[in-house]
């Protein structure tokens, strides 16, 4: 069963094609990774799927609905959630509040109720807080809940972003380099977390530079080079593919 289907997606910036005709599918509980050398167009592809950029061509289909170029907040309503390569944390808010922001769709109600601090408003906020604290526990940040997010270490912020994205109870989770800049221990923690999330039935689309991690946890790998898909398949197939080796190590290695 396909949950997210990418069909011939492409975009150009100033006449230069950043991504060309890329297609693949993601099913619930599956971890699909997009890999490729720097500048291959991975993040651009992510930004098109998550509605940040308008694709020049192609379609994004989520749960049978064409959601191409739909605004991110509407995609969130349809069950898509994401993290960012260069962290997008609400710096001056507490760790708990950052996670609560992920509950926006579940906890927001009439402004007037919030203004008057009506019981309905407090009830919504309380329910969200319980969920948020449980999520923080899951990513190992429960003791930092009241700290200002800006004061956390890089690895903790990465996990906070995942907690915030999980707060939406997404069907599809897009993770843009969740382990970038993390040390080996932190990477392994994030590794486990992602596998756990996938096991709960969430479809995961991952962009990651850490090859070991990608090979370890992916069910399916899509390889991009110069904006085009050059290979796809399970980790074993992809790692043997001559085109992939050429893209990563240079053509002479592949020939030799």
């Amino acid at each position: 069963m396909t949950l997210l289907s990418i069909e011939g997606l492409g975009i150009s910036f100033g006449g230069i094609a950043a991504v060309k005709n890329v297609s693949f599918r993601v099913s619930p509980g599956e971890i699909v990774s997009v890999i490729g050398p720097n500048g291959a167009g991975k993040t651009t592809l992510f930004n098109m799927i998550s509605g940040v950029y308008q694709p020049g061509s192609g379609k994004v289909v989520l749960n049978g609905e064409d959601v191409t170029a739909m605004s991110p907040h509407l995609l969130a309503r349809r069950g898509m959630s994401r993290t960012f390569q260069n962290l997008q944390i609400f710096q001056t808010m507490s760790v708990l509040e950052n996670t609560l922001a992920g509950y926006h769709l579940q906890e927001s109600g009439p402004v007037l109720a919030d203004l008057l601090n009506l019981p309905s408003s407090r009830r919504r906020a309380r329910a969200a807080e319980e969920g948020a604290r449980a999520l923080l526990k899951r990513v190992g940040l429960e003791r930092a809940a009241e700290r200002e997010a800006g004061s956390l270490s890089y690895g903790s912020l990465k996990r906070l972003e995942i907690a915030r994205a999980m707060a939406l109870k997404p069907k599809v989770l897009l993770l843009d380099e969740p382990a970038a800049g993390c040390n080996a221990v932190e990477t392994e923690e994030i590794d486990h977390l992602i596998a756990e999330i996938a096991a709960s039935g969430v479809a995961i689309l991952l962009v990651e530079h850490d090859m070991k991690m990608v090979m370890r946890i992916s069910n399916h790998i899509v390889v991009l080079d110069h904006g085009e898909k050059i290979a796809e398949g399970d980790p074993a197939t992809v790692s043997r593919d001559p085109a992939v080796i050429a893209a990563y190590l240079g053509a002479e290695h592949a020939a030799g």
Binding site: H73, A76, R77, F90, M93, H104, L105, A165
Partner: peptide, 16 residues
Amino acid sequence: RALHGSEIAARTVGID
């Protein structure tokens, strides 16, 4: 406060 902190992140958590 979230949209003030990061508009793009605010949108991805569903904030209009």
